[in-house]
């Protein structure tokens, strides 16, 4: 079966802005929600989503239709979100080091944002504690309904690894939510 988005990417690669806009409209919602849950920060998700689309626009002329457009789009999103998370972790650890040196070892604990609902907060926190690849696999499966083959393409691993990641992710979340 021909991927219906292939034409859009092809036209985007030739500089067709309308085709690019159609691509943005189709993927902006799923990407924003995936990135917000993957990074655990809804406030930076929109900026990352925008960056993902800029990368898609630039990479469109070189797109090789070996994989589905959706898996290509989510691969870019995963990489971009991971890069941003690494950057934030480095910045956070630097800030913590500065804070510790200023406060003489005092370790300030984070306060949860008041506007978050309790359950949502618990799930988001449990999701955040999963290893990056388990969280990505779970979100791609549960929210985007990607097959194991597609998830394997996005994350660059085997189908067996995806099966194992999903099993471990669900078991960890189940155990965590059981304790609540």
């Amino acid at each position: 079966m021909v991927d219906p988005d292939l034409e859009l990417v092809d036209a985007t690669g030739r500089g067709d802005q309308e085709a690019f806009e159609a691509l943005v409209v189709k993927y902006q919602g799923p990407l924003l929600n995936f990135i917000a849950r993957y990074t655990g920060d809804r406030f930076i998700a929109e900026d990352i989503t925008q960056e993902v689309f800029i990368r898609i626009y630039r990479a469109a002329p070189r797109f090789q239709p070996r994989t589905k457009v959706s898996t290509w789009v989510f691969s870019i999103a995963c990489n971009q979100a991971l890069t941003e998370m690494d950057r934030r972790r480095r910045r956070r650890s630097l800030c913590e080091a500065v804070s510790r040196s200023r406060d003489g070892g005092y370790d300030e604990t984070g306060v949860s944002p008041a506007e978050r609902f309790e359950l949502e907060e618990e799930i988001m926190s449990a999701l955040g504690r999963l290893p990056d690849n388990q969280r990505a696999a779970l979100l791609l499966r549960v929210n985007e309904e990607l097959s194991y083959r597609e998830i394997a393409d996005v994350l660059g691993m085997t189908i067996e690894s995806v099966e194992s990641l999903l099993f471990r992710a669900r078991t960890t979340l189940k155990r965590h939510l059981d304790r609540k």
């Binding site: 919602g29 929600n33 998700a45 779970l138 549960v142 929210n143 979340l173």
Partner: peptide, 8 residues
Amino acid sequence: LVHGLPKI
């Protein structure tokens, strides 16, 4: 629960 997280 994961699926039911509010959409942004």
